[in-house]
Design a protein around this nucleic acid. Sequence first.
DNA 1: ACTCCCCATGGAAACGATTCCATCAGAATT
DNA 2: AATTCTGATGGAATCGTTTCCATGGGGAGT
Lengths: 332, 332
Amino acid sequence: MGSPAQRRTTIKDVAEMAGVGVATVSRVLSGGSASAETRERVLDAATKLDYRPSALGRNLRQQRSGGIALLIPDITDSIYARLTDGVLSCARSYREPVTIGVTGDDPEQEADLVGSLLEQSMDRVVAVPSGNGEMWTPAIRAGLDVVFADRRVSGEQRALDEVPAVLADDRAGVRTAVEYLTGLGHRKIGFLARHGQAERVEAFRAALGDLLDEDLIVHARASRDSAYAAAAGLLQRRPDLSAVLAGGNKLGEAAVLAARELDVRIPRDLSLVMFDDVPWAELCSPPLTVIAQPGQDIGYRAAELVMRQGRRPRTVLLPTELIIRGSCGPRR
Amino acid sequence: MGSPAQRRTTIKDVAEMAGVGVATVSRVLSGGSASAETRERVLDAATKLDYRPSALGRNLRQQRSGGIALLIPDITDSIYARLTDGVLSCARSYREPVTIGVTGDDPEQEADLVGSLLEQSMDRVVAVPSGNGEMWTPAIRAGLDVVFADRRVSGEQRALDEVPAVLADDRAGVRTAVEYLTGLGHRKIGFLARHGQAERVEAFRAALGDLLDEDLIVHARASRDSAYAAAAGLLQRRPDLSAVLAGGNKLGEAAVLAARELDVRIPRDLSLVMFDDVPWAELCSPPLTVIAQPGQDIGYRAAELVMRQGRRPRTVLLPTELIIRGSCGPRR
DNA sequence: ACTCCCCATGGAAACGATTCCATCAGAATT
DNA sequence: AATTCTGATGGAATCGTTTCCATGGGGAGT
């Protein structure tokens, strides 16, 4: 607003005041070698002038803009908010800015965002991939450093298999939940899945074994409506259902709402286990039994991996935890 | 990973292929004047080479890195997640990247983040300010374009009064809630406030009038523990309390938990109105009556304002809405 | 026919940092 | 004493874009 906008102090100013060349200033400031006396003079001048190196100049020279990019499906979903929080907290310790983009679980938008990353010369990305991940291949070849979080891509291309991934141990989580439910006597167990949760569905199939009934596995899109429709549909279509595993907190919410609407009481008529522990799970009536995922940790570890240069593990599996509250009961 | 990392195509390559100078290419691509024939040749070459202008070069030249910075207290809080979503959705329509930082409601961290914005030459910020906002004054003078969202600063400095702000109409929200509660017969109404919610507290005082009892206004920090302590403390200290207004969803959650713990039944023994509608308010038992705030709109409008160059309104007030569910009853 | 003006155009400067390379002084080695 | 080595130092190139300015050609106006 009408400010005179004085020129910012550059490395040149510092060099002049310290009576040295710009190269020396740059070296001193980035830890290169210099004599003690020179170093002091430069540091002194920098402090006096309140010099802050311009990220712009550096970025152009190094052909890369620092910072971490983060691509998630939906920031309003608690699990991704926590993941984001983890990334931010790791990035902060490296003093790196974080640029965030939401994909809406849409591969097209995701590809679009990857494009704009390239345009910005960002070369470090933590991403929750949406599609089959084919848009990543060229970007990775172009030098992009990617770490997947929370999911990995189906992966047929070679390059994608090299991408490290930080994941919750879904298989173990699903298995534990299923064992818990079968232990309670349940035989007809449904699974409310979001599209793209292939791994969880697969684990569900494996865990159920003989009890598997494909008709009890239903898929929804990420939207609230779709989740509700899937839940209500399943409940109406299969009154013999006695337990449900919800693949995410939105689906869990939908299941609770649908059950309430259809006058199916939890846990008397229906047992419910939800993926992802959220604050409200405890406030819900009844309090929900959940498979907690370490969302914040996933983000933190993924950011850590993307910051590391050297060899990195291909996959990090983080443990889940079954938290038993009040939404499951014995089969009646 | 060991890729040859081929040089990216620059404007020079395009110029060469089109047989024109780089200046002409730049002009064509940024909508300057050029003959139809030249334009076509340039566009053709650009397409053929899959040329994407480097944001780095442009930023350095223009002395500003595009994009919007967003500073919020806590991304895992639903209200700020929605605000962020709004900012992202506006930014996307301008094709601008969004850099995000969390302040933890700590002025020191906030100042630190503002510093790093300057370093990055970001000049557009949407911020939920934490402290008294003094750290903003120099930054604004240095040419930073700021829009406050959700809160405004206490503001004693001239420069801060010029900063546009997009806010929920807290006063009206509080007034409506208080009127609703007094209408139900309540006389002893408490307020669980977060530090920094001066405006809401003030509105609360004004709305209560004669009924005001300063002892019923308690403050908590943003943390979960602090919120719980404040809620439990209030409930224990003043058993004569018959209704509570919670200043945010964390405080509402704390109130529900504390009431449950102390065997205070809602709404029989205590009526509860919570600021901020969250998905779980409906799932809670009983479903919570809330003052809904348009979090996403606040973010969108704030981002819109920060993108506009020209004259901007000083303050945008967005309406709140009282959503009556089941957490309030008549005084007993 | 002469002048004037406008527009398209390209060369070159600028942005602010890092880094290559040449230089030079002084120490260490032969 | 001559040579080599080491480490500090500064000049200049470089990154990719935008934008200033000079140039030149062609059309319009007198």
